[in-house]
Simulated scan of single mutants.
Amino acid sequence: MPAIQSGTPACPDSAARQRRLALQLADMIPGAATIRVSLRDPQVVWPHPHARVWDAEGQPIELSRTRATVAARWIVRVWPDADWTRPHTLDLASAVLTRSNSVSARRGR
């Protein structure tokens, strides 16, 4: 049976996906304002998705390893074109992903 073309792309508008993910992460991690994502978990030698979270005042929010990995994987999947050799920070209020600067990356932020 031939496939039917619907004319609708499989992936809707990427900006809408990014906003939706930011809302889902804010629901999943109450109080979270920013999430820093990298493929370098400090507890693992090989590349592994890792996330650290801060609230609006800049205080860290502790996550379980599973929740940190899930959040990092979701972010990497929604922004596949980002240069993931460097850490990135997602602002949940604006759904904007920016590359983390090297100074904050060295401090673990």
Rank of each mutant, 00 (worst) to 15 (best):
A105G: 02
N101P: 03
A3T: 13
R106W: 12
A71Q: 03
A22T: 09
V76M: 10
I61T: 06
W46Y: 11
C11A: 09
Q24M: 14
A51I: 06
V45W: 04
A22S: 15
L23S: 13
R40P: 00
R107F: 07
L25K: 12
A93P: 00
R65T: 09
H48K: 14
D83R: 15
Q18D: 00
G7E: 05
P60A: 10
Q43W: 10
T34M: 10
R40L: 08
G58S: 06
R109D: 04
V76P: 00
I75M: 06
D41G: 14
P60R: 12
R67G: 01
S6H: 14
M28Q: 14
I75V: 14
D27A: 13
G7N: 11
S104V: 10
S14T: 10
L90Y: 04
E62N: 12
G58A: 06
D41H: 15
R19I: 02
G7F: 05
L90S: 05
C11F: 06
I29C: 09
V103M: 06
R106A: 13
Q5G: 10
I35V: 15
P80S: 12
A10N: 09
R99Q: 09
A56F: 03
Q24D: 10
A16K: 15
S6E: 01
V70P: 02
I4M: 13
A71N: 04
I29H: 12
V44Y: 09
G31E: 09
A33M: 07
S102V: 12
V53R: 01
W74N: 04
P12V: 07
A26Y: 07
T8D: 00
T8Y: 11
A15D: 09
M28D: 08
V96M: 07
Q59T: 11
P80E: 06
W84E: 02
E62A: 14
R17T: 01
G58D: 07
L97P: 01
G7V: 09
D81S: 15
T8C: 07
T66F: 07
S6I: 09
T69H: 14
G58E: 04
P80H: 10
A82H: 06
P80R: 13
T8S: 11
V78K: 04
A105W: 05
R52C: 11
P60L: 08
G31Q: 12
V76T: 13
P30L: 09
T85R: 15
V70K: 07
I35Q: 03
R73P: 01
S102K: 13
R99F: 00
G108A: 03
P12I: 08
A16M: 11
A93Y: 01
A3I: 10
R19V: 03
H88T: 07
P47C: 04
T89Y: 00
P42N: 13
D55P: 08
Q59D: 03
L97N: 05
C11K: 06
G58R: 01
P60E: 05
A15W: 02
